[in-house]
Design a protein around this nucleic acid. Sequence first.
DNA 1: GTTATCCGGACTACCACAGTCCTGATTGGA
DNA 2: TCCAATCAGGACTGTGGTAGTCCGGATAAC
Lengths: 152, 152
Amino acid sequence: MLRLSKLTDYAVVVLVRLSGMEGVQTSPGIAAATGIPEPTVAKVLKTLAAGDLVCSQRGAKGGYRLNRDLSAIPIADVIAAIDGPIALTACVEGSSTGCESQGLCPMRGRWDPVNDAIHKALSGITLADMQRGLLPAFRVPVHQAALQPAAQ
Amino acid sequence: MLRLSKLTDYAVVVLVRLSGMEGVQTSPGIAAATGIPEPTVAKVLKTLAAGDLVCSQRGAKGGYRLNRDLSAIPIADVIAAIDGPIALTACVEGSSTGCESQGLCPMRGRWDPVNDAIHKALSGITLADMQRGLLPAFRVPVHQAALQPAAQ
DNA sequence: GTTATCCGGACTACCACAGTCCTGATTGGA
DNA sequence: TCCAATCAGGACTGTGGTAGTCCGGATAAC
């Protein structure tokens, strides 16, 4: 649950990659470095540019560049850029269409505090935090251990 | 984004409704009271029963009953019951399949702190909290106003 | 002028969810 | 004992959104 689009995941990877290099970088270059398909990288970068997280330079020798430091990019911004405003869908204050059973539904708009809590939580974590937590130990294939046949 | 399934929304409504009555209540009864289609209510209740949030009584005069008070049900439990474990999908520690580009992806498992933050945020809000925020003003049929034929 | 790159959009295939329905098991009452 | 009401559990289908690709155009360096 709380489906986070795969593109957002890619976006984080791409942004981290951007931070590691000087000057602009091209989509194909990032694609090669990250293993993400080229068209998808391009799509992500375009979206990030629209969200003002990266800036682009067109033409030959063009490419993309980070707009701010990783430590100044809360994960909430990335999610908002890729997936749109952060809010649990359905029956949220913003959805002015209203649920069909508006008169009866007693919880109308009551998700707001929840949305708020999530938004706060996501605003408190920056990409730098995520990058910092990176440990080689994570490469251990945990699922193998979990798959040990208990019975038999 | 952060898609929360509609069923979860229904679940909250249903649970709140359950809390307001004594004894057991039937699916049709709740459906009538909330305006949610009967089969859907039944589905939600079955799922909630599986998640141990409500208990059921079969047979004639059967129905559902809350297992604990609203104030003892964090919204996280409801979400977990309906949508499964709370975690942003893709590239999470649990996803033992691993991303295709495991060797390259530098963010492997780095979503965990984010998941944790979200989980904490959701665990801190109970259904009672959501219910408490309820204001009568919300009953105003906003959509009616929005539907006023501006042209002609 | 040519080439490399980004820009913006359209387009398609796929998958998960929403919602419905059906068959069976259980229980209370006639 | 039989019947009716209710939950249990699953199968099924339509819809919507996402992932991923591709194309024509604009821009800038060489």
